[in-house]
Design a protein around this nucleic acid. Structure first.
Length: 262
DNA sequence: ATGGTTGAAACTCAA
């Protein structure tokens, strides 16, 4: 049974409930992974999602910040949530499908503005978070798994609007890319989006601060879909829904999709 | 070098 999955940093699931409805109605992925829900789990508006055919949800939440949720047409089993770096943040949740595939949904710390762990605690926490992801994949090599989310790093030169200008900007520093790559390699994760679309910009985030985000097009690819090698070959039809950045009261991130024939 | 915008929640922090 093929299924389509989407990942979207929604930047408040309650404020943008109707945008989630729009995505579920117009694009109808089987599974939607959300980040930055900014809500306790019990305040996520489930009724509307269920009415649109998404009765299943596995989530971790907290008041005001962070928060990750997996909405699904298909039954899900809770497969845990990790608190890397012991920040007490809701940044990871995992769910198992009936076919055994595990979906990991991550919201990696943004890391603040200064890319120096001596001056900026948050940058150190981001690097440590990625190292603990690496160590978890080393301790138990994932199989039949998909990893999605806002990883808050644009790893490749063509994942940012200007590679040279971005080298000292948090999200594209060589240190961050090394840490992300180490986590990726520890799980042998395949970058599904880049497997499907090897070349060119595929931005998933544009700042709210630009006067005209579309004209400036200073985007970054921060949102990712990875899969373990045993199922990566089943992935196809990756796409980024850039139009969602132009929706009314948009998130600063747009959904990224992939389909798996499993 | 600086400021630009948004959200949650509370009179400020995080992104």
């Amino acid at each position: 049974m093929p299924f389509t999955l989407a990942t979207w940093n929604i930047n408040s699931v309650r404020l943008r409930e109707t945008l989630v409805h729009k995505l579920l109605t117009e694009e109808a992925p089987d599974i939607l992974c959300l980040q930055e829900c900014k809500s306790p789990v019990e305040k996520i508006p489930l009724e509307g999602f269920a009415a649109l055919g998404y009765p299943h949800m596995i989530a971790r939440g907290q008041k005001g910040y962070n928060g990750v949720a997996i909405l699904s047409k298909l039954p899900l089993e809770d497969a845990g949530g990790l608190d890397h770096v012991e920040l007490g943040h809701a940044r990871h949740v995992a769910a198992r499908l009936e076919n055994g595939v595990v979906i990991h949904n991550y919201y990696v710390p943004a890391g603040g503005d200064e890319p120096d762990r001596e001056k900026n605690v948050k940058f150190g926490q981001k690097l440590d978070y990625l190292t603990q992801m690496r160590d978890a994949f080393r301790a138990e090599r994932p199989e039949k798994a998909i990893l999605v989310g806002d990883l808050n790093i644009a790893p490749r030169e063509d994942d940012v609007w200007d590679h040279k200008k971005m080298l000292k900007i948090v999200s594209h520093t060589p240190t961050e890319v090394e840490h992300l790559t180490a986590a990726q390699e520890a799980g042998a994760w395949v970058d599904v989006t880049r497997k499907d679309i090897p070349e060119g910009p595929l931005y998933s985030w544009w700042s709210y601060r630009a006067k005209d985000w579309e004209a400036a097009d200073r985007g970054r690819r921060l949102d990712h879909v990875w899969a373990t090698p045993d199922i990566a070959g089943a992935a196809h039809s990756s796409r980024v829904l850039k139009a969602a950045r132009g929706w009314e009261k948009p998130s600063d991130h747009v959904p990224v999709f992939a389909t798996f024939d499993l």
